[in-house]
Amino acid sequence: MSFATKLMLSFLSLGVITIWGLTLNGIVAKIFARVQGRLGPPFWQPFIDIIKNNAKRTTVSHGIMFYLGPVFRIAGGIGTYMFIPAVLGSVMFSNYSVSGDVFLVMYFIFFGQLGMALGAGEGGHPYSAIGVARGLAQMTAFEVPFALSVISLAVQYHTLNITEIVMAQQGSILNWTLFTNPLAVIAAMIAMLGMTMYNPFSVVIAPQETPIGPPTEYSASFLGLLATNRGIFNAAKLVLFMNLYFGGATNIISMLVKTFAIYMFSVFVGVAFPRFKTEDSIRFFLKVPALLGALAIVVWLI
């Protein structure tokens, strides 16, 4: 396969995953609404919002870094996705999985947020600054159990390649990491709550708790970019979790079903709880989940 074809296919897969990610957001909004006793927006609402944001006539910019913030962010999202094989064995969805891509992906997850921090800082709004500080603090915190869990996996499967980790889980449902390494999965799933930024770990973008989060000053197409990224990034993370813990997917249908199911977990929790304060959530991540992650490594090391 030529490089060009590969590039084309991976962008196609990026497109599919963007649409899926945004649809998932829409569906989740609908589910949220049902729990809250209302009907909720149509599931295609995120798409309209993105179009609307891009259709804004004016937008305010505070400088070059402000401009680059969302770009970094979406780069982080795309980067994350590009190194995860979405569907095992599919040419189109295999993307650029390479050896050691687990760490690459983890880096990309962090990368977007850092870029955002720079951009939001340039915006100069104290709310963004506080939001970024909270976001980074919380991210660092949930990275700990997640990283521990991934290390546990590396120990378990003796590889840092996602494709290989997925391969190792094929065959029977019992081969999934979920059953082979439950401690690591629990640690990672709790970390995922922080990653998807649903309650109780949503203080970063909480409107009520003072800041509106890093995007306070962002509007129009910047915001559109961020919203698109939210689709890509969420889906990429879900695909990653699916690959690492839930046996990956061999066809696109199972990919969709599994990512949806994984996403539902954070929704399930998110709708029931208020938010933690930042220090509470840090304390939380560094306690039980981190312990579980460490335990998972220890178990496999032994």
Binding site: V35, G37, R38, A272, F273
Partner: peptide, 15 residues
């Protein structure tokens, strides 16, 4: 106890 909220998802919405 908070997961009690999910009960509402299967009831008639207020809307």
């Amino acid at each position: 106890s908070p997961f009690y909220v999910w009960k509402r998802a299967f009831e008639k919405p207020y809307s």
